[in-house]
C-alpha cells in the first residue's frame, strides 16, 4: 500500500521541479541545440545539393566542350576541304592556261619556222639561180672565146628561138 500511495509533498515538489526543468531546457537548451542540428543538416544538404549541381554542371560543361570540339573539328574539316578544292581548281586552271600558252608558243614557233624555211628556200633558189647563171656565164665564156664562136652561138640561139 505504501508503494502506491503517492506523497503529497513529492507531487508538489515534482510539479515545481519538473516545470522548472522543462522551462529552463525549453528556453535555453533545446532551441539552440535543435536549431544547430537543423542548421547543420541544412548545411550538409545544401553542400550535397551543391555538389550534385556542380557535378551536373561539370557534365554539361564536358558535353559542351565535346560538342564544341566536334564542331571545331568539323569546321576545320570543311575549311580543309574548301582549301583542297580551291587548290585543285587553281592547279587545273594553271594547267589549262599553261597548256594554252604552250600551244600558242608552239604554234607561233611553227609559223616562224615555216616562214624561215620559206625564206631559206627562196634564198637557196636565188643562190642556185645566180650560181647557175655564173656557171653558165663561165661555160659560155670558156666556149665563146673567138668572135666566130660568138656568131655561131648567136646563130644557134636565134635558130633555137626561131624553132620555138
Amino acid at each position: 500500500m505504501e508503494l502506491v500511495n503517492p506523497g503529497l509533498g513529492l507531487i508538489f515538489w515534482m510539479i515545481v521541479v519538473f516545470s522548472a526543468v522543462l522551462l529552463i531546457l525549453k528556453k535555453f537548451v533545446w532551441p539552440s541545440i535543435l536549431q544547430s542540428l537543423k542548421d547543420r543538416e541544412q548545411h550538409i544538404e545544401d553542400a550535397l545539393h551543391q555538389a550534385d549541381v556542380t557535378r551536373e554542371e561539370m557534365k554539361k560543361l564536358k558535353l559542351d566542350n565535346e560538342a564544341l570540339l566536334k564542331e571545331a573539328k568539323e569546321e576545320r574539316e570543311a575549311i580543309m576541304n574548301e582549301a583542297r578544292k580551291i587548290r585543285e581548281k587553281m592547279l587545273d586552271e594553271a594547267r589549262l592556261k599553261a597548256n594554252a600558252e604552250a600551244d600558242r608558243i608552239v604554234e607561233s614557233a611553227r609559223v616562224q619556222i615555216e616562214n624561215e624555211r620559206k625564206a631559206a628556200l627562196i634564198d637557196i633558189k636565188n643562190q642556185i639561180a645566180e650560181i647557175s647563171i655564173e656557171v653558165a656565164e663561165k661555160i659560155l665564156r670558156e666556149k665563146l672565146q673567138t668572135p666566130k664562136d660568138h656568131e655561131q652561138y648567136i646563130q644557134r640561139v636565134i635558130d633555137s628561138k626561131q624553132l620555138n
Binding site: G7, L8, G9, L10, W13
Partner: peptide
C-alpha cells in the same frame, strides 16, 4: 496534514 516535506525523493529530484 498537508505535507510539503523535502523527502529523500524530492531531494534526489533536486
Amino acid at each position: 496534514p498537508w505535507d510539503f516535506s523535502v523527502t529523500k525523493n524530492v531531494f534526489a529530484v533536486f
